[in-house]
Amino acid sequence: MARLDFEAASLELQQYRQSGERASERVAYLASRIIKDGYSAKLKDDIWPFYEQAVTAALDVGDFRLADECIENLKRRFSSSSRVQRLVGMRYEAEGKLADAQKIYDAILEEDESNILVSKRQIALLKLRGLKSEAISALVTYLDTYYSDAEAWIELCSLYLSVHAYQKAAYCLEELILLQAANPIWHLKYAEIMYTLGDYSLALKQYCRVIDLHEDHLRAMYGIQLCASKILDNGEADGTTEALKELATERILATEVNQCTIDSIKQVVREYLSVA
C-alpha cells in the first residue's frame, strides 16, 4: 500500500471539520491511516479535534475499534469533559444501548442544561426509538429556546411530514424562510407542501420565488407547469397563469435539451408537456 500523503490528508480532514460535511467513510479511512502510519504525533494540537472527528466518522461506518481508540485517547487528556462524554454516549447509541446513552446524556444536561449538542442527541434518541410524537414535542421545546436553529426546524418539518401534518410542516418552513430567506430549497419545499395541501395559487407563487432565487430551477419549473395547469383546469386563471405555463414549458424543453443526452427521455418530456 502506498504511503499516505500526510500533509494532504490532514488538510482534507481540516476542511471537513470546517465545512461540517459528514463524509464519514473518507474521514474514517484517512483517520485510521493516519493513526496506523504513526502520523498522529505530527498533528500536535490538532490531534484533539482530529480524534473527535474520527470518533463520529468511525461510529458512522461501524468501526468500533477506531472509535474506542480515539475515545480512550481523549479520555486520558480530558477526563471530565462533557464533549468526550457525549462521544461515549454516541458510542452506546451506535451499539444500540440506548438506555446507557440516555443516562450519559441526562448526566451531562444535569451539569449544563444549555448544552445544545447533547439536547439534540436526546431528541435523536427519541427518534431512534420510534417515539415520533415525543420527538416532536421535545423538538418543539428545544426550538422554543433555540429559535434560530435552522437544522432543528427542518428536522421538525420532516417529522411532521412523516405523520402527514402538512399544516404544521408548512409552519416550520415559514420559519425557515424567515431565518434564511435566500435559500431556494426552503421555498421549493414550501411550494410542494402548499401544492399537496391544494393551495395551488400560493404554490405557484412560491415556485416562482424559487426561480427568482435560482435561475432555471428545473424542479420549480415543473412545479409551475403543474400548478398552472391545475389552476387552468379549475377555471380560476387569469392571463398571467397561462403565460407562466407557456414560459415554464418552453424553459423546461430548453433546459432538458441542453442537459439531457438520452433521446428517449426527451421524448417522454415532450409527450408529458403536450398532454398537460
Binding site: Y147, S148, E174, I177, L178, A181, R209
Partner: peptide, 14 residues
Amino acid sequence: MRGSQLRAFRNAIP
C-alpha cells in the same frame, strides 16, 4: 431575534 427576523423578512412569507 425572532421578532426582528419576522420584521426583516416579512415579505418572504404569505
